[in-house]
Nucleic acid binder design. Structure first.
Lengths: 149, 149
DNA sequence: TTAGTTGCAAAGGCTTTGCACGCGC
DNA sequence: GCGCGTGCAAAGCCTTTGCAACTAA
């Protein structure tokens, strides 16, 4: 099992990103590592019990700080609240469920960033290629099949 | 009916999608054809002068109806208001400017839908692959260069 | 100590919803 | 005439902002 790679200490990761280490941030970091693709609300729900005075705004602060510091990546599935994940810099993409909003990771088909290049850049200075596969997750597909039978 | 006209009559397109033809919808359709990648606000600003009693909600209604009927496609650049365009079914992708939100079309590098397949579907029933290239458009790049020089 | 963070409150942007009137079919 | 669509108003969701008190370094 991949447990060989010791999970980086939250405090070290946060400090390494140039941010101060606080209880809130450590909690958010841990929650995000254990449950990637979480929305701010999800993270808040997870860290709330562990903190003295939890606040949704602090979670937003932490998430935004992480995103800005390059610790976390922001995912914004169309029409849904934004999600966050800690995997960064490995150019992976996402599968998103149009029904329930579930998101799963997919390794890039090509393997190196940017994994695609547009045929015409229209003068844009391109920095990133984002790929999202839309579909229906296994659970929702099962629900649909059950409903239509 | 030959659908080979350079510009399909708005009324025909709308009726063809199974929607009733109204002034609002015709105006929205025309505005969208002339200015693709428009937000609801943009469209509203364009159609308002031509209508008697314009309303932003009607524009939203029309756009959502179009999207649902397959007449228009909804684009949702992360963190920006949603945009709409009339090109549908041709599997093209987008270039988006991280600075100003400008969007440009790019033909799919592969050419047929879905143009990519994930390495692992995680049980998803995939219906669409969406590719967005993020970067800085020519105008914003020029502004940045000017500011840093 | 001192700048960076938190917590609380409130505002803000974008989009949707509800309902009566009017119009396309 | 029937039913969909419009217009007006209001609410809703998610996110950001402002400011005093607090705390990591």
């Amino acid at each position: 099992m991949p447990a060989s790679e010791p999970a980086l200490e939250p405090a070290a990761a946060i400090r390494g990103a140039g941010l101060r280490v606080t209880d809130s941030r450590s909690a958010v970091f841990t929650a995000l590592r254990e449950h990637p693709h979480s929305s701010a609300d999800d993270v808040y729900a997870r860290v709330a019990p562990a903190l003295e005075h939890p606040s949704l705004q602090s979670v937003y602060n932490a998430l935004n700080d992480f995103a800005e510091a390059g610790l976390a990546r922001r995912i914004e599935p169309a029409g849904r609240p934004q999600l966050f994940e800690l995997r960064v810099g490995d150019n992976h993409h996402h599968l998103a469920c149009t029904e329930c909003g579930a998101v799963a990771d997919v390794d890039c088909v090509v393997g190196e960033a940017p994994c695609l290049a547009p045929s015409d850049t229209h003068g844009f200075r391109i920095t990133e290629a984002e790929v999202t596969f839309w579909g229906v997750c296994a659970d929702c597909a099962a629900a649909q099949d059950a409903a239509s039978s």
